[in-house]
């Protein structure tokens, strides 16, 4: 059963300068469903629209970001809603923080520098549960942060007095204190050293197990995805190019971009030069025609330059947007590609 479904979402950054309108097609026609209780990963290189997708999913749309088309539907146990269709800011606020929450990117600066940690908890708990201070508040927060291995004393600290790893764990505690149904984690381990990364990954796993939430993890770090996710989507230039179970994705990648992404990962003891996709990510202001990966694709065909490939299911639960997957064509070019090499 899906808890969140995104249908043909188009979110663009629109800016106007001297009557010239510039559009950055950050999310351009994205469709996917996230099942209840799963950890869904979204991977892709920098600037492919991952973070914009997250913003749109939580309804944090502020100019210059605009949603042109599509819907983001939540199917909670008690009700269904399209967060983009909600008129009032008040209704969105009720959902944010309580039903869906964020573990943000770069937790270094997500805590208000001039207030104690306790105040941040008071703000969130007070807003959504109406508990303002007192023993009830203390009990609630204490049991939660102690379950996450944090000491109560950190509540009296200011953000600058804590280490990066500690701050990240506090933000995770902050994001999960209300036991939200859906948690979005945007680069939760970026800028942390590997030891702290491991701690954060374990913490996320633990919370998931206890609270049974659904998680969406966005990062370019494929190791994190392999470690945490059930299903994984690969984004390229504002679109999803492949979606599959994590195991299938890593064992039999179908899209040339996914193949290259996985090939670029180093393995222990292998000293050969890693291959990566040639060229640079495309501009989202003026994306390439047809399949957006075609200028960098080693297996490019004439059709790729003209037509946009649809995301089609090639195996059960494995979807790919590539013309190579259209039966015979695929086999032929594969041979061609082999000869070419």
């Amino acid at each position: 059963m899906s808890i969140l479904s995104v249908e043909n979402l188009k979110a663009h950054y629109v800016t106007e300068k001297r009557r010239k309108i510039t559009r950055v097609l950050a999310v351009d026609g994205v469709t996917f469903h996230i099942n209840k209780n799963e950890i869904y990963g979204i991977a892709g290189e920098s600037g492919c629209g991952k973070s914009t997708l997250l913003k749109a999913m939580s309804g944090l749309i502020k100019p210059p970001l605009q949603v042109l088309e599509g819907e983001v539907k939540y199917h909670f146990d008690d009700r269904e809603l399209d967060i983009l269709a909600l008129r009032g800011e008040k209704e969105r606020r009720e959902i944010r923080g309580a039903r869906i929450s964020h573990i943000p990117q770069g937790s270094m600066s997500v805590l208000n520098p001039v207030r104690r940690i306790r105040k941040s908890f008071e703000d969130i708990v007070g807003t959504h549960l109406g508990i303002r201070g007192g023993s009830e508040f203390e009990e609630l927060v204490k049991s939660h942060i102690e379950a996450l291995g944090l000491d109560w004393n950190v509540m009296h600290s200011f953000p600058h007095q804590l280490s990066g790893g500690m701050r990240q764990r506090i933000t995770i505690a902050l994001a999960t204190i209300l036991k939200p149904d859906v948690i979005f984690a945007d680069e939760p381990t970026t800028a942390l050293d590997v030891v702290v990364q491991r701690g954060v990954v374990q913490l996320i796993k633990k919370i998931k197990q206890e609270q049974q939430n659904t998680m969406v993890i966005v990062t370019h770090d494929l190791a994190i995805h392999a470690n945490l996710c059930d299903r994984l989507a690969i984004m390229y230039a504002g679109r999803i190019v492949e979606e599959a179970n994590v195991d299938d994705m890593f064992q039999t990648p179908k899209h040339p971009y996914t193949e290259m992404l996985l090939n670029s990962l180093p393995t222990l003891g292998d000293r050969s030069v890693r291959e990566s996709a040639p060229g640079a990510p495309p501009s989202l202001v003026n994306p390439p025609s047809g399949c957006r990966f075609h200028p960098r694709c080693p297996k490019v065909m004439e059709k790729c330059r003209l037509e946009v490939p649809e995301l089609i299911e090639v195996e059960s639960g494995h979807q790919v947007a590539c013309f190579l997957q259209e039966g015979r064509v695929y086999e032929q070019t594969r041979e061609l590609g082999a000869n070419y090499h």
Binding site: S58, L60, R92, R93, E94, I95, R96, G97, A98, S101, H102, P104, G106, M108, S109, V110, L111, N112, P113, D123, I124, T127, H128, T171, L174, A175
Partner: peptide
Amino acid sequence: DYVVYAEASG
């Protein structure tokens, strides 16, 4: 970030 996060926390 902390202002955006406060917004995201509703």
